[in-house]
């Protein structure tokens, strides 16, 4: 969405994930980039190169934090040390909003370091929404949740994934980071129409969009973030922008990372959709002319 309370009233364009192989290029060439997304966990340390590079990036660029281990859907409570370190980083980056995944990944203090799918139950809706509210209150900035890609579904689920997402964000009153690649991956793995999902999401809560590449195998699709964005994912992206308006967009590339220029060029392809959405739609002009 254009500036609103879920994205800290910002209007960010197209960004890319800040990754170690690109550090040198970015710091020495200072390319024009709308914004960078950082993985919070990589900077929740006490010192050294990660923080120094981050500070240099912060001097020149907009940075948004994205986490991979908050596990809003874990039944056991998050580690207070994690929250404390995260808040310290939030103060450093002044991130206008913060995202993490609608998933679980730890239980009884043990971490899987994976983004495990939620059972779509009413109990899980309640637990997850409460956790998001708690984290949001503690961090004092807008928290947005991202849909994950999944390879399994549970017998106990009582609703679809998009119904679950809607229930959680309404109860938590938070924004959404809509990952259209994840929607596509899950739609293939679970045989649903990805457009049904995109059309069901409350457009006014979409604070950010993720695009990425994936890998197709004989029997399933894996969310590998190691390819350019595929055509069906661009189509879902276009539909999302059509519904939500120009929205902060980020390309994720985590494996077999090509040069900075290649990653950035791939991300900038999103601009054609964003620019189209920013212009008043042609049919409306036609209406006025009549």
């Amino acid at each position: 969405m254009p500036a609103n309370r879920f994205n800290g009233f910002t209007e960010y364009g197209v960004g890319i994930g800040l990754r170690i192989p690109h550090y040198r290029h970015i710091l020495s060439r200072k390319p024009v980039v709308d914004w960078f997304e950082i993985i919070s966990e990589n900077y929740m340390v006490d010192g050294g190169r990660p923080l120094e590079v981050l500070d240099q990036i912060l001097e020149q660029y907009n940075v948004v934090q994205h986490g991979v281990s908050m596990y809003f859907g874990s039944a056991s409570a998050p580690d207070p040390e994690h929250l404390k370190r995260l808040k310290r980083l939030v103060k450093r980056t002044k991130t206008p909003w913060l995202s993490d995944h609608l998933c679980w990944g730890s239980v009884d203090g043990r971490y899987t370091h994976d983004l495990l799918p939620m059972p779509y139950t009413w109990e899980a809706v309640k637990v997850t929404a409460e956790r998001i509210r708690h984290v949001q209150d503690f961090l004092e900035i807008p928290v947005v949740v991202e849909n994950v890609s999944s390879y399994a579904e549970y017998h106990v689920s009582e609703m679809t994934e998009w119904e679950f997402l809607n229930e959680v964000v309404e109860r938590a009153d938070c924004g959404i980071l809509l990952d259209v690649n994840n929607i596509y991956v899950s739609s293939q793995n679970h045989s649903f129409d990805p457009f049904t999902y995109v059309n069901a999401v409350p457009a006014d809560r979409i604070a950010q969009i993720h695009i990425a590449g994936h890998s197709k195998f004989e029997k399933y699709i894996l969310d590998t973030h190691d390819h350019p964005v595929l055509e069906p994912v661009w189509q879902l992206y276009a539909r999302t922008i059509e519904r939500a308006g120009p929205t902060a967009t980020l390309l994720e590339w985590d494996d077999n990372i090509p040069s900075f220029e290649d990653v950035h060029a791939e991300a900038l392809k999103a601009n054609q959709f964003l620019h189209a959405a920013a212009k008043p739609a042609a049919p409306e002009f036609a209406e006025v002319a009549k």
Binding site: N42, S69, L115, D223, D255
Partner: peptide, 12 residues
Amino acid sequence: GSSDSSSNNASV
């Protein structure tokens, strides 16, 4: 080579 870091993608 240089060390890797946390990410949220899957491995083949």
